[in-house]
Structure formats: structure tokens, C-alpha cells
Design a protein around this nucleic acid. Structure first.
Lengths: 213, 213
DNA sequence: CCCCGGCTGCATCCTTCGATGTACCGCGGG
DNA sequence: CCCGCGGTACATCGAAGGATGCAGCCGGGG
């Protein structure tokens, strides 16, 4: 039995969703929420298998609610919306939603979507899948250019200094942050430049950026 | 009528796919290819609506073939594979595939997938959708942190210098690249630092990185 | 026409950076 | 024990960077 929490502010729509869900023998409506805050609260309380989440809701929008629920690992989230705006789709998926369905979906599709997500799989409305693919393809592949293994050659202190360099700090700034003399900072900078085969702190900063540190 | 080109090296599997496709009244098998090279050549010749593409094929693999077909805008590509390895999935999607289906799909699902892609929508096997979402979410959101509008305040020359800074070049290096005296480079660096409210070239380099310039 | 303001270019001066030499500490092996 | 080695720390000095002042150049008004 799949226990579902329905989060949708328009009561008529919510009633419709509940009706559809109840029509399935393997699905049970565990609760109903009329806004995002309630959705999070009820998810904590009821621990459903899945939350059917509308995007547009008062108090706390569906995307934010999704983020919280996923962060606390309370349940999987299937996001439901009328509009297939990119910001909704990408926002919801980045928030950790397991699926994204448009409201114009058939009742049958909705039930199938619930079962799919409950199985631990993912589901995207066909109409938005192509844009997701496009967006995905557009993003540059995680550049293997920046090789984290080079960091192994650095000592802990040197890594700390490199991190500071990535923030654009001056030697004086680093000295203050790491509580050492500026002269010492220079030593570390010099050594890490040598180990990484760089010629200036600027290149080190760029590298730190690429390595996200 | 949807015209489909089937690209699959194992003849038995290919025959099975053709049989399934022929069973649908709205789908026509326009041709069959036994490797990637053939697939590209036949796509050029037959101009099908859609190519059903296996990943593992001799001579030219399915991902590369997909890349070519999409680059030439010959047809949409629905990639088919036995294994849902990340490299296949992400590779195929980045190559421009419109859909990705596992071979364990039912005949009905296959036909539905063909129709979906032919409609211009996208389709991903549920089993791999979740990983696509995860991968998508893992990629850093195009950070709005770095605001491209600040660049409007810079002159063309200053933007060129900023770009060089982003590569970690020294003033001397920039002078050579842009063919001006080092003293002039310093002027531009100084001015752009002021306009961007930064305090060192390192911060400018970091900013240039974030803006991807 | 001339003037003005912004862009571009260069030179001067002081600050910061980076290379180098040295010293201290802790640790493992001869 | 003493030595060597790697990590950390600091001082010194030449080199690079950054601020500032100033000059030519162009385009739009007055």
C-alpha cells in the first residue's frame, strides 16, 4: 500500500486528486495539506511514502517545501503543476523532487506516476522531458580538466592557503584568517605554486575555483 | 505515418524491433542499419522521422552516430540499450538524443516511446530518470550570484583585460596578448577593479571565472 | 569652431607578492 | 643517540602589481 500526502491549496483540485488516488486499490491517501508549511509538518508527522506537491501554494511554495522534505528524507516528492515553466521544473528537480507531472495528465497517468515514484524510479512529464534533456546537454560536462588528485601533493596548511586564495584574499588577509605571519603565508603560497606548477596566485585562485574550494 | 530507421548490430534483436514496429499501423520501418556508419549514411539518404539507435555497435558507436545525426538535423534519435550505465545515458543525452529507453521495455512501451519522440517530446526510461534528475540536481545551478550586468560598466578594452585576468595572465602577458604597454594594462586593471569594487586582480580572476569569460 | 567627457594610452611611485635562505619541531631509521 | 626529512614558520630582497597624474583621440553639443 502506497501512502500518499496530497499538498494542494485549491480544495476542489485537491478533492479531485484524492478521488483519483482513492480509486486505486494499492494507494492510500495518508493526509491532505493546503499549503507548504502544512505539507512539511504533515510529512514529518505522517511519514508518507510520497508527497504529491503542487508548486503554487501560499505560505511556503511547493519547491521550498520539497527542498525541506527531501532534506529531512521524509518522503519522495512528486511535483504537480499546471505550467511547465522552466523555473518550476528545474527548481523542483534541483530541490530534490523525484518526479514532475503536469496537471493535464490523465488519471491513469497520475496513478502510474505515483507507483513509479514509489518504486524509487523517476518520472518526468513527456512535454518537459525534452527541455530537461536540452538543459542537461547545455550544461558543460563536469570538467575533468581540474584534477582533484593534484591536491594530494599539498600539505594541509597549503590546502588551507589555497582555499583562501580562491576567495581572492591577500597574503595579509590569509595571515589573519589562518593566524600566522604574512611571511609564512608567502612561504605556503610559494610552495603550493611550485607543487601545482603554477606561476602566480591568480592561477592558483582560478584552480581553486575550478576545484570548488 | 512515422518513418523509423532501426540501427542495431545484432540481427536477431533488430528483427524483433522491426516486428514490433511493423505491428503498429502508424509506424513504418524506413530502413535498417547494422552499425553506426550505416546508420548515419542511411539517415542522410532516407531522412526518417526517427532513428532507433543501439548504443553498442561496431565501427561507430551509437552515441557518436547520434551526435552526427543530430548535428546534421537528420532526425530525432531514440537511444536503446541493455545497460543503463551513466556514461551511456549522459553521453547519449549530451549527444542530443531525444529519448533513452532500456531494452527490457515492453513492446507497448517501445511503440509509445516512438510516438512520444515523434511528437517532439522527450522520453526517458523510468529506471534512469531518477539518476538523470540526481545528476541534474548535482550540477551547480547557473549561479545568479555573478551578475553579468556589472560588465556593462566596463569598456571593451577593460572587458578584454578582465578576460585575460580570468586566464591567470600577468600584466606582461596581457600586454603581449592585447598588444599594449604593460603600463597601459595596469591602467585598465586598476580601472576595472575600481568599477567592480574589487581590491585585487585575484578577485577579478575569480569573478571572471564565475562569469565564464 | 571649441569645449567637454569618456576611452585609450603611457610613466612614476609605493605596495604587495614571490623566491630564497634559514630555523625550529616532530618523527622514524641507522 | 644523532641524523635526515618533511612540515611549519619567519626575514630579506628583487619583481610584479596597483594607484595616480597626465596626454592624445574621438564624438556630441553649445
Amino acid at each position: 500500500m502506497i501512502r500518499v500526502l496530497v499538498a494542494e491549496d485549491q480544495s476542489a483540485v485537491r478533492a479531485g486528486l484524492v478521488l483519483i488516488l482513492r480509486s486505486a486499490p494499492d494507494i492510500e491517501v495518508a493526509g491532505e495539506a493546503a499549503d507548504g508549511e502544512q505539507a512539511v509538518a504533515l510529512a514529518r508527522e505522517l511519514r508518507p511514502d510520497l508527497v504529491l506537491m503542487d508548486v503554487q501554494m501560499p505560505r511556503l511554495d511547493g519547491v521550498s517545501a520539497t527542498r525541506r522534505i527531501v532534506a529531512e528524507r521524509l518522503a519522495d516528492v512528486l511535483v504537480l503543476t499546471t505550467f511547465d515553466l522552466d523555473e518550476y521544473v528545474f527548481g523542483a528537480l534541483r530541490a530534490g523532487a523525484s518526479g514532475f507531472l503536469l496537471k493535464n495528465a490523465e488519471a491513469r497517468e497520475l496513478l502510474e506516476a505515483v507507483r513509479t515514484v514509489a518504486r524509487g524510479e523517476g518520472l518526468i512529464s513527456p512535454a518537459v522531458t525534452r527541455r530537461l534533456i536540452a538543459e542537461f546537454a547545455a550544461r558543460p560536462a563536469r570538467e575533468p580538466a581540474a584534477d582533484p588528485s593534484v591536491l594530494d601533493r599539498l600539505t594541509r596548511r597549503e590546502r588551507e592557503v589555497l582555499s583562501c586564495l580562491g576567495e581572492g584574499l591577500s597574503n595579509a588577509g590569509i595571515a589573519e584568517r589562518l593566524e600566522m605571519a604574512e611571511a609564512t603565508v608567502k612561504t605556503h603560497v610559494s610552495r603550493l605554486l611550485g607543487k601545482l606548477e603554477l606561476r602566480s596566485r591568480v592561477q592558483a585562485a582560478v584552480l581553486a575555483q575550478e576545484l570548488r574550494i
